[in-house]
Amino acid sequence: MMNLFRSPEDRDDELLSAYLDNALAPGDHLKLEARLAVDLKLRRTLNELRAVKTGLTDLPKVKPPRNFTLTPALAGQPARRPASPLIPALNWATTVAAILFVAVLSADLMGNRFLAAPPSESQVLTTQVEAPAAEAAPQVALAPDDTQSEALKSATATPDSTLRVLVEPSAEVAAPPVGAGTLGEDPYSYAGAEPLTDVPGTPTPSLSDSAVASSETPTPEGTAVAQAQTADQATIARESETTVAEVAPVENADMANTQSTEPGTNTLRLAQLVLGLALVGLVTASFILRRK
């Protein structure tokens, strides 16, 4: 619509200007070149416009009189305060604390793994052993009673030295009920020395023999039961003998280990706690300083 009110010269100026900038459509470009080939005035105008364009393009660059970099004030930022001198120190302290924390943590973990291996075996052994020992203890404790009562009844020598050894570990527990009125001066002897010690002419009986011998007039069933009970007790007692004997040193060793490692472990844990707290504190302080 605007083109309708423009002079042919104005339209030609626009065509020639676009031609100079290679901004004409291909069809318009060809048409204009055909006109330029025959129209001298149009060609002269084109040369004038080209000279204008060249003159502008070749204008010398003007050197900026100064740099236009922005200061914080120009940029609308608050003036940057100098960084706190504490920040480098905090960085170092944080690094050192982190390294120490990792080292202590590693030492604790490796120490636990090192200590955890042997106790795991002994714990298995202890659990295997402690159960029979716990069960055996009262039975063994009862054994002297039964044996003693039967021995007292039969007035025959029943327990031999083996039984005494068997009873000895449990005797401390079983001693009070047994010892009252029955034990002589020797706390490990039963019913005085004479009946329990070697009776002349009496062969040293085995436990089962003594059990059989202890019941002079039992019923056959009672004899069998008594034999079975005594045999069981003896078996348990033997087991308890070995297990108690084995467990005692293991437990002692375990306790010794625990006692010897506990102070070191506690120190490591304490160091971990202190270093962890220090690390958190340093990181927090550093963060706050940087924010400021």
């Binding site: 605007m2 104005d10 100026d13 626009e14 020639l16 200007s17 676009a18 900038d21 901004a23 105008t45 004038e48 416009l49 000279a51 204008v52 364009k53 003159g55 502008l56």
Partner: peptide
């Protein structure tokens, strides 16, 4: 395109 063409034409006259 129009502004550039007019500007060049006026500059040509000025030159």
């Amino acid at each position: 395109k129009s502004r550039i063409a007019r500007a060049r034409a006026k500059l040509r006259d000025c030159f």
